[in-house]
């Protein structure tokens, strides 16, 4: 795969659009997933992913072949999404919006399973949307793209210790949110319970 990538990258550097389209085809899912998890909305993720590939296309000559292409392109996507979120500063997730699913694929879940998946997805979005954009990017890279702390540090231009502390803080925040979400309904019930009980 790496050799094929190298060939496509070399061709794309020489202006071969078809070669770059091959790269888009190969990396569309990880890039889209990164944008979707960062922005929490299908339309915005689509635009962000397209913009990511355009930025990569423009800066292809600056790409260091020593780095893996996926690391490089995910880093572009992450930085773009972080910037977008800093610009927006509005609620990031709308429950009505979910990505389009390919009903023609055999691996696609049934509508019932789909609803349950969407519910899980929205719960997860709510959870990770509470994190700061850079922390969220680190979590997405770690848990969806299996990146090491060193790779994350390279992608987000942070030191390894900064990545470690951000991941630690995020994990703690996520755990606390889970605790709160399990405790709150109980508290609510007790608040409304009859004093006689």
């Amino acid at each position: 795969m790496v050799n094929i990538d190298r060939e496509w990258i070399d061709k794309a550097c020489l202006g071969d659009e078809e070669a770059f389209t091959k790269l888009v085809e190969t990396y569309q899912n990880p890039v889209y997933n990164m944008c979707y998890r960062m922005l929490g909305e299908a339309g915005a993720a689509e635009d962000a992913a397209q913009e990511t590939f355009w930025r990569a296309y423009q800066n292809l000559k600056r790409y260091d072949p020593q780095r893996s292409f996926i690391t490089w392109i995910l880093s572009i996507a992450a930085h773009y999404c972080i910037d977008q979120q800093r610009k927006r500063r509005i609620p990031l997730f709308e429950l009505d919006e979910f990505p389009d699913f390919d009903l023609g694929d055999p691996g696609v879940p049934t509508p019932e399973k789909q609803i349950s998946l969407n519910e899980e997805d929205s719960a997860l979005h709510k959870l990770i949307n509470t994190l700061q954009p850079v922390d969220r990017a680190a979590v997405i890279m770690r848990y969806w793209h299996e990146c090491s702390e060193e790779e994350i540090s390279e992608m987000l231009d942070l030191s390894v210790s900064a990545v470690k502390s951000r991941l630690h803080r995020s994990r703690k925040q996520l755990a606390n949110l889970i605790t709160d979400s399990t405790i709150s309904p109980e508290k609510e019930r007790r608040k409304n319970e009859s004093p006689a009980l």
Partner: peptide, 30 residues
Amino acid sequence: RSWLEAHHQLRSAPITKAPKNFISMWQNNL
């Protein structure tokens, strides 16, 4: 307990696939 639950949620979430027309969109957008 809470972290294990959060970890499970993170690990079990699949990679969201790009829309079917992503490549044609890319070609138009280019």
